[in-house]
Nucleic acid binder design. Structure first.
Lengths: 166, 166
DNA sequence: GAATTTACGTCAGCCTTGTTGACATTCCAA
DNA sequence: TTGGAATGTCAACAAGGCTGACGTAAATTC
């Protein structure tokens, strides 16, 4: 049913049908979103999990294992499997914390940075194309809605990264 | 209207940094997007794959297995495992095609519709809240960018569903 | 200084959901 | 009649989640 509207304001954008279109758009767009890096990763022995780790280590060099766990929202066993592979292949290195020696600070090696670049180039190219097609006004709306969709703690993480970045 | 940019207008929304924020927004938002149905599903014996099947069968009642394969982008073996569970639990029924008896047309049973409703209620509630927070202009932009991110074939699927709906 | 907590690693085992390959059935269409 | 399409099913496997249990070193608290 069409929702009531305050005054003459149209709230048609809140109908079930409109919302469902948004849901399906998320589904199909997310597929596109991951498609390019996935293609690169599958030629190597890596998956999406490695990509995510590499992305956020690149984003916040020196981040700890614990931070990464929070951001990625997986168990340490899961993350550890991924990190072990990245260590062994020399893409990531861990340095023992100076202040707190229990912590491991994670950094991409040169080789890791190369991979990161090739992955995010692919993804950025698609994003940039989409941005260009849609225009700045649409991009603003895109980000606004996505932010509103996040869980509050995740939104904090996201906004933290926003400031924190280089 | 803060409109586009002929000539020397700002293209700042296309910087690497802006694009990266978009990438991270997609990552975090998608987590939120799936969180609510996931919580419901995990109490039952189902996963996201079941949700997707139920969603699209509900969306296009009478769709064939082949159509579903195309839309979901998985192998028939994967889909078949999911469908078998849904048949056994009486959520979905398959009717042999009248014109082409090889085809199975898929329908939700009343029980299946109940599950679909409870799942999409959860997801729609979040989406609607996000839409309301962001406003109609932002929602327009949101959908525009997502559409631009899709692979062309997926975009066709998506737009086909748009018209095809109930 | 001892006890506890924190940060991390690791082993083992399980589940979901994706994959390939092989093969059977049914049925449309040439 | 035969080829190929649509569907189903069996088997095996992999990625990447999960839990539980245990170990170690360092920091913190008592």
């Amino acid at each position: 049913m069409v929702e009531p509207n305050s005054g003459s304001e149209s709230l048609l954008f809140l109908t079930d049908e409109q919302v469902r279109k948004g849901i399906e758009a998320m589904f199909f767009a997310y597929r596109g979103f991951t498609a390019d890096p996935d293609r690169i990763l599958e030629t190597m022995d890596y998956g999406r999990a490695h990509h995510r780790a590499v992305h956020f280590i690149n984003r916040s060099p020196g981040t700890t294992v614990g931070n990464l766990l929070t951001i990625l929202g997986v168990t340490k066993q899961s993350l550890n499997r991924v990190l072990r592979a990245l260590f062994e292949d020399g893409l990531v290195e861990a340095r023992v914390g100076k202040r707190d020696k229990r912590e491991r600070h994670l950094y991409l090696t040169a080789k890791g940075q190369d991979l990161e670049r090739s992955l995010s180039d692919a993804q950025r190219t698609r994003m940039r194309a989409a941005y260009r097609m849609a225009g700045p006004q649409a991009v603003l709306g895109f980000r606004t809605v996505l932010e509103a969709m996040m869980d509050p703690e995740m939104r904090k993480q996201y906004q933290g990264l926003k400031e924190g970045g280089a």
